[in-house]
């Protein structure tokens, strides 16, 4: 059982809320982190822990776009397409990725490494175009930068170009 393996974490999560159901999103996050998507058995398990029916878990899961009901690629490339990023070229980012990986939005590469999505605003409007890959942000993308990110991810599973604690513009050196 998934949650048995994270007993301490589950207990810590539950302890934060006076009403059990509040732990639903955190537990779903945990499940998705582990399995890459929210499986039916995870939903059932969580329902049980929180005294909910599976339907109650399901309706909540499907409201939030970050939860996947099916497995996706190891790296989830999410390119923001909202107006602010679009003004600075996000549509091209999609084209670059498409060119490099041969996948259109909604598709996954044959090696199951990359899934491409276009998404709405990710809160990085001043540093667009950008994409989020799993937990990390990559901003002010160029074709070359996208290429490097994808190569690094494929090779190393990580990439040093990801954004750290955010500050933009950087203060001018005095």
């Amino acid at each position: 059982m998934l949650l048995d393996r994270f007993k301490n974490e589950v207990e810590a999560i539950l302890s934060r809320y006076p009403v059990k159901r509040s732990a639903l999103l955190p537990l779903l996050n945990l499940a998705q982190r582990e399995e890459g998507f929210v499986s039916e058995s995870a939903m059932k398990e969580i329902a049980k822990v929180l005294d909910l029916t599976p339907a109650q878990v399901f309706e909540t899961v499907t409201f939030y776009t970050m939860f996947h009901l099916k497995p996706i690629g190891k790296f989830h490339l999410q390119v923001c397409k909202s107006l602010m990023c679009a003004l600075v070229g996000s549509d091209e980012v999609v084209v670059w990725i498409q060119k490099k990986l041969g996948i259109a939005p909604g598709q996954t590469t044959a090696d199951n490494l990359f899934t491409l999505s276009v998404v709405e605003c990710l809160g990085s409007c001043g540093t667009g175009p950008m994409m989020q890959v799993n937990d990390d942000y990559y901003e002010q993308l160029s074709e070359e930068k996208v290429g490097r990110v994808l190569d690094d991810l494929k090779r190393d599973g990580t990439c040093s170009l990801k954004t750290g604690p955010f500050m933009y513009p950087q203060p001018l050196a005095k």
Partner: peptide
């Protein structure tokens, strides 16, 4: 107190379903 019905998704595409 049965809670068997789930509105799935959001916006216009919300659909009443059971579990999955």
């Amino acid at each position: 107190d049965v809670k068997a019905l789930a509105p799935m998704g959001r916006g216009t595409m919300t659909e009443i379903k059971a579990f999955g």
